[in-house]
């Protein structure tokens, strides 16, 4: 019982991180129709910014700086690398995104070296709850993700800019002709995605206080998997996919026999979903009209 409870809480917390990153993938895909494979590395950049600003021993300052820096970075990357390719073949954009990903990783390695850096943002300790011992940081992560997701859902649903985002994702051309500044909306999307990635970076550091230039690589791929499982382009889909993947990962780690194969299991789920339901759980069904 205790084991189940702690596994579920850890799973939800990890899933929350995946969901946050997946939201960045899915929103950018929905609106700019591109896969931003550099998204995962924004997490790593966020982590390093926290590491640098933790020199001042003020976690809140470090977190704030990480979010601000990542937002600026995300927007600059979009303007410099992706915007000139608007209208180019999706493959060109994809390759550019992978290039940016390597660029960020290499820059981090040049600046901070290849050895892992240790950084403790804040030690929340742990609590015992119904006999199960859980890290408080996992609960904090879970709580923050829930708040962020609720806020984002409300933002997209009930604000002028959120509505414009949906309009752009439905029909970019028509949205533009209805007076929506599509470039502006894409910028906002990248800004939101990068802010979420910065928070994800923070949560990774809370989970394990070590950072390297490849910190973002695996979470990036996992979150992308989550986004596809949930249905890429769908915001609730990204949340669902992220939570699902997090729970599967934590359960799998607890079962000794299959623990070494955890990653394989997660990606197998992706393959199965792609075979059975290629649009993901909540993705739009495209029925060809004859």
């Amino acid at each position: 019982m205790e084991l189940i409870l702690s596994t579920v809480i850890n799973g939800l917390s990890l899933g929350g991180i995946y969901a946050m990153i997946a939201l960045g993938y899915t929103m950018v895909y929905g609106i700019a129709k591109m896969l931003n494979f550099a998204h995962g590395d924004i997490i790593m950049v966020g982590g390093y910014v926290i590491y640098v600003f933790m020199a001042f021993h003020n976690p809140l300052l470090a977190i704030l700086m990480a979010v601000v820096f990542c937002v600026i970075l995300g927007v600059v990357i979009e303007k410099v690398a992706y915007k000139p390719l608007r209208g180019a073949s999706p493959l060109a954009v994809l390759i550019t995104a992978i290039g940016i990903s390597y660029l960020l990783q290499s820059l981090a390695q040049i600046i901070f070296g290849s050895a892992n850096k240790m950084v403790t943002v804040y030690d929340f300790g742990s609590v015992t709850f119904l006999g199960a011992t859980v890290q408080v940081s996992a609960l904090v992560t879970l709580g923050v993700t829930v708040i962020v997701m609720a806020a984002l859902t409300l933002f997209v649903k009930y604000t002028r800019i959120g509505r414009a985002m949906i309009a752009v994702s439905e029909d970019k051309g028509a949205a533009q002709l209805m007076g929506i500044n599509v470039d502006g909306i894409i910028t906002v999307t990248f800004a939101i995605g990068s802010a979420l990635a910065a928070l994800a970076g923070l949560f990774y550091l809370l989970k394990a206080p070590s950072i390297s230039s490849t910190l973002g690589a695996m979470p990036g791929i996992k979150a992308f998997t989550a986004a596809v499982i949930g249905g890429i382009g769908s915001i609730p889909g990204a949340m669902l996919g992220g939570l699902l993947l997090g729970i599967v990962e934590c359960i799998s780690y607890k079962i000794t026999v299959i623990a070494p194969y955890t990653d394989a299991i997660e990606f197998s789920i992706l393959i199965i979903i792609l075979l059975v339901r290629p649009t993901g759980f909540l993705g739009k069904k495209r029925r060809e009209k004859v």
Binding site: R160, A164, M178
Partner: peptide, 20 residues
């Protein structure tokens, strides 16, 4: 016709009001 198909009727119009 190029409506925003998966948005409600009223929100389609509200998108039109976006730029004002």
């Amino acid at each position: 016709i190029r409506l925003f198909n998966n948005m409600s009727v009223i929100r389609n119009v509200m998108v039109g009001l976006h730029g004002q």
